[in-house]
């Protein structure tokens, strides 16, 4: 198909765009929606790669993505946020333009790193490795610059998205067993972290992670 590569490029670019949007948004619920969008794009791109490469097992992982990242996790997170009353996350450690500028530098760094690697890869999606790397780093940056526990989890999940994208783009996906394992891990992780949230809130009566700084021994 002649349009596979341009469309894949477009999807990859959108993925990057969503990562940046995540960096710039203040409301937690918006973040969850963006995360769901990211999952949807991941689903589409995986389907496209599966179609063009003829590897049918990629369809399974695409379906898994759809189920878990587009439907299940956002639902769980939304419920969690409502239960916790944590809709707002107005406080960021660094102001947003500066964060985005740092994000930009990270993207260049990631692209620069990926250039030699993508030269070696043979898949049609090799150029996307840089974007995958950038998505991972940007999610990391989001985790660093946010103060609320829920956003940290979203950052963590977005990072996993980036890894997944890296796997599909560089090597046409991981073995099915590994993928299932990761999916299960993520799901269980979210549940456990959800429990943690309640514990944190009970302890400090807020989800602000600055409170945890008091835990260190002086």
């Amino acid at each position: 198909m002649p349009y596979t590569v341009p469309i894949l490029n477009l999807l990859a670019a959108c993925l990057l765009l969503i990562s940046f949007a995540m960096l710039s948004r203040r409301r937690t619920q918006r973040l969850v929606n963006l995360f769901a969008w990211q999952g949807a794009i991941l689903f589409l791109s995986t389907c496209l790669v599966a179609h063009s490469s003829g590897l049918h097992e990629l369809y399974y992982s695409a379906a898994l993505t759809l189920l878990l990242k587009v439907i299940a996790l956002p639902l769980i997170l939304h419920r969690l946020i409502n239960r916790l009353g944590a809709q707002w996350d107005s406080e960021t450690v660094v102001n947003i333009p500066l964060t985005m500028l740092a994000g930009l530098v990270l993207v260049i760094f990631a692209f620069g790193l990926a250039q030699p690697i993508s030269m070696m890869a043979t898949t049609i999606t090799r150029n996307m490795l840089g974007i995958a790397l950038a998505v991972i780093l940007l999610s990391f940056l989001m985790m660093i610059t946010r103060r609320k526990a829920v956003t940290q989890v979203i950052g963590f999940l977005a990072m996993e998205n980036g890894l997944f994208f890296a796997a599909t783009s560089a090597t046409y996906g991981m073995p099915m067993v590994v993928e299932l394992g990761i999916a299960l891990d993520v799901l269980v992780g979210v549940f456990i972290l959800g429990l943690f949230f309640f514990q944190i809130r009970e302890q400090f009566e807020s989800l602000d992670l600055r409170n945890m700084e008091n835990l260190k021994e002086d």
Partner: peptide, 10 residues
């Protein structure tokens, strides 16, 4: 040069 050709347009 990698990096340079991405940073310099900025």
């Amino acid at each position: 040069h990698a990096f340079v050709n991405m940073f310099v347009p900025l």
